[in-house]
Structure formats: structure tokens, C-alpha cells
């Protein structure tokens, strides 16, 4: 009976530790994961659902995360799987980024805002295979190795895609620029 009480209090201690670990993960990664999810689906509501579901699954299998340093790729893998499930369940309509209201409270000048909208539109147009590694690198701060692991590609392929992603963006943006100049002439 006494042993039972002890094991019960041990369970409570383990539970409290798990909770602390979990809360830390939520606080550290929720913003980045939300942004990553947002750029995968380009819908604030779906993005929040994805992040919620990701953390719920993370809570359920937190014991399988042995190394806290591996938390980021681990969470990203869960989130990507959740996103894929979404397509299995139902094909959502994609909203065009041009119709979205992306209000970024951090930018204050009109120039900045315009420039950001132009860049956002071009990022949205990138093929998935280029956009995703770029998001992992720029939004999530993942290294080449981490991206390779998450996307299950070899590192050279990741590097090539990152190069092409930026190249395509640069080209598209300079085309935009020329069109703008042409229009104002």
C-alpha cells in the first residue's frame, strides 16, 4: 500500500516535469511554427489549427523526444505530417495571397509594406519543393542538415533547392521592378 503511494507521488512528479518541459517547448517554438504553418497553408485559421494539433501530438508522445535539442526538427516533422493529413481529408481551396490581408504591425512605412507584399506574393508563387526548404531556413533557422533530415532529402539536393529558390525570387522581383518602372513611364 505504501509502495503504491510512493509510486503515485512519483507519477505526479514525472507529470509535473513533463508539463514543465512541454510548456517550455510551447513558449519557445509556437511563434516560429505558426509562421511556418501559415506559409504552408496561407490561412491564419488553418495555420493555428495545425499548430494546435502539432502541440497536442507532441504532448502525447513527449516521452519519445529524448534530446531536447532535437525538438525543432521533431515538431516540424509532426507539423508537416499534420499538413499532409489535411490534404488526405479534404482538398481545401487555396486563397490567393493577393486577396489576403496580411497586416504586419511591425512594418511602419508604406514603402516597406509595399515591398513586403511584393515579396510575399512571389514567395507564395514558388513551387512547394523550393518554398519549403527556404521557409525552414529563413523562418525556422534550420541548418542544411536539419532541412535534409526533415524533408528526407540529401544535403546537396537541399542546397540546390535553396539556391534555386532565391534565384527564382530574385528574378521574379526584378521583373516586378521593371514592370513597375515601365508602368510609371
Amino acid at each position: 500500500m505504501l509502495g503504491n503511494e510512493n509510486s503515485k507521488s512519483q507519477v505526479l512528479v514525472d507529470m509535473a516535469e513533463k508539463k514543465t518541459r512541454y510548456e517550455k517547448l510551447v513558449h519557445i517554438y509556437h511563434s516560429e511554427l505558426y509562421r511556418f504553418a501559415y506559409w504552408l497553408c496561407r490561412d491564419p485559421n488553418i495555420a493555428e489549427d495545425l499548430v494546435q494539433e502539432t502541440f497536442l501530438r507532441a504532448w502525447r508522445s513527449l516521452d519519445s523526444l529524448l534530446d531536447q535539442k532535437a525538438a525543432k526538427p521533431w515538431l516540424l516533422t509532426i507539423l508537416r505530417r499534420e499538413n499532409a493529413r489535411r490534404f488526405e481529408r479534404k482538398q481545401f481551396d487555396y486563397s490567393d495571397v493577393e486577396n489576403d490581408t496580411l497586416v504586419d504591425e511591425k512594418s511602419v512605412t508604406l514603402d516597406d509594406e509595399m515591398e513586403q507584399t511584393v515579396i510575399q506574393r512571389q514567395i507564395a508563387k514558388l513551387p512547394d519543393e523550393y518554398r519549403e526548404p527556404l521557409l525552414l531556413q529563413v523562418v525556422m533557422g534550420c541548418s542544411g542538415e536539419e532541412i535534409a533530415e526533415i524533408l528526407d532529402l540529401n544535403k546537396n539536393t537541399v542546397m540546390t533547392r535553396l539556391y534555386r529558390a532565391r534565384n527564382q525570387l530574385k528574378e521574379a522581383l526584378s521583373r516586378d521592378d521593371e514592370q513597375l518602372k515601365g508602368a510609371s513611364n
Binding site: S31, F55, E105, I119, L134, V138
Partner: peptide, 25 residues
């Protein structure tokens, strides 16, 4: 260019998201 990209991708995170995640869990 990368900073421009990072700024453009930095969409606002809904207020109270962490709180809602913890409540949901």
C-alpha cells in the same frame, strides 16, 4: 535580400496563441 525575405515572412502571430495551446492540451 535575406533580411528582406525574413521581414516579409514574419507574419504576425495571433495574440494569446501559446495560452490557447496550453489550454487545449
Amino acid at each position: 535580400f535575406d533580411l528582406d525575405l525574413a521581414n516579409a515572412l514574419d507574419v504576425p502571430v495571433p495574440a494569446g496563441l501559446a495560452e490557447r495551446i496550453l489550454a487545449n492540451t
